[in-house]
Design a protein around this nucleic acid. Structure first.
Lengths: 187, 187
DNA sequence: ACCTGAACACCGTTCAAGT
DNA sequence: ACCTGAACACCGTTCAAGT
C-alpha cells in the first residue's frame, strides 16, 4: 500500500534528481503530492528528516542490488568485483543521490539513515570476508574492505568534482578498483 | 594590501567553518565586513561565485603546503607519503572546507576554482612521477597517482559521512594509504 | 490523525539612487 | 568604481483552526 509518506519520499527523490538538493522545497514537494506546502510536517520532523529518509531508502536499495549481484558469484574475489561494479554504476548514474547519501548530515545522527548505512557496509564487508575465506584475496578483511570501498568512493567523488579526470587517458573508477583488486590478489 | 574583496573572502571562510555552507548568508558576510547586505555583489557575481572563490583560495593554500612538505624529501616514495599526509591532515582538520572544495558546483565551470584544482592535482602527480622516475614506486604514474589520491580522498569522505568507521579497530585514512603505498612499492 | 491557510522571520537578487 | 536602502519573490517553520 502506497502511503502519503511514501509519495512524499518519491516526490522529494525526483526533485533531488532534477535539480539537486537545493531544488527540494517543501512547498514543491507538497504541491506535486497534491497537498499543501506544509503537509510534509505531518510525516517528517523537518526538511532534514525528509532528505535523510530519501537517502536511507536509496542506500537500502543499493544494498539490495549489491546483494543480488553477488549471489551467483562462485568465488570471493568475484563477489568483491561484482559489488564494486554495482556501487560504481549506481554512483555514476545517480550523482546527485550519491552526493545526498554521503553529504553533510550535521552532528546529530539520523536513525534510519544510520541503519541503512550499516546495512550497505555489511554487504560489502561480507564480500571481502568471503574472498579472504576462500583465499582468492589475502590479508585482513578489516583493512581490505575499507581500502576497496574508499578507493571506489573517492574516485567517483573526485570525478564528479571534475578535479581529476581532466586528462583524456585518465583511468575510470572501475579501472582503478580493478587495479587494486589485482594488487591484493597477487600480494 | 588587504582589499575589501579579500575581507569578504575571509569572512565567508570563517562562516563556513562556524556553521557549514548553509551558514554563509550574504547579509551576514556584509555585516561582519562592516558593509551592507549586498555589498558582495560589487565584488562577486553571486553567492556561488563567492563560495567558489573561497574554495579556490583554500585549494591553492593546500597545494602550497604540499609543495613545501615535499621539498626536503630525498626519494620519490617519501614525496608521495608526505603529500598524502598533508592532504589527509588538512581534510580531517577542516572537514567543512573539504566538503566545500569538493562539493557540487553545478554544470558551468568556475575559472579560478578550476585553475586551483589543476594546480593541486599537478603537485600530487609530480610526486608520483618522481617516485616512478627514481624507481621507489613501479607502474604507470597516470594510474598510480589517481589511485593514491582517490583512496585518501574516499577514506576521509566516508569517515566524515560516518558510514565507515563504526567499528572500533577500523583503520585510519593514513593507514589505508600507507598500506596501498606498501603494495605499490612491493609490486 | 491528517490537513489547510495565514503569518513570521529569513534569504538571494535586482534596481534606483547616492558619493 | 563602490556602496546603500527599498523592494520582490522566495523559503522553512509555527500555529490556530478545521475534518
Amino acid at each position: 500500500m502506497r502511503t502519503t509518506r511514501d509519495t512524499l519520499i518519491e516526490v522529494a527523490a525526483r526533485l533531488v534528481d532534477e535539480g539537486g538538493e537545493a531544488a527540494v522545497t517543501l512547498r514543491e514537494v507538497g504541491a506535486r503530492a497534491g497537498l499543501s506546502h506544509n503537509a510534509p510536517y505531518k510525516h517528517f520532523a523537518d526538511k532534514r528528516d525528509l532528505l535523510a529518509t530519501v537517502a536511507a531508502v536509496e542506500l537500502r536499495n543499493l544494498a539490495t542490488r549489491i546483494a543480488r549481484a553477488v549471489a551467483p558469484c562462485r568465488t570471493g574475489i568475484e563477489q568483491v568485483r561484482a559489488s564494486a561494479r554495482v556501487y560504481l554504476e549506481w554512483a555514476q548514474a545517480n550523482p546527485v543521490r550519491f552526493k545526498l547519501v554521503f553529504g553533510q548530515w550535521g552532528t546529530e545522527p539520523h536513525d534510519e539513515l544510520d541503519a541503512a548505512a550499516a546495512e550497505a557496509t555489511s554487504v560489502m564487508y561480507n564480500c571481502v570476508a568471503a574472498a579472504v575465506a576462500d583465499r582468492t584475496l589475502r590479508g585482513d578483511p578489516d583493512r581490505i574492505a575499507p581500502m576497496v570501498w574508499s578507493l571506489g568512493h573517492g574516485a567517483v567523488d573526485l570525478n564528479l568534482a571534475d578535479h581529476l579526470r581532466k586528462k583524456p587517458g585518465a583511468p575510470t573508477p572501475e579501472q582503478l578498483v580493478d587495479d587494486l583488486i589485482d594488487l591484493l590478489g597477487a600480494g
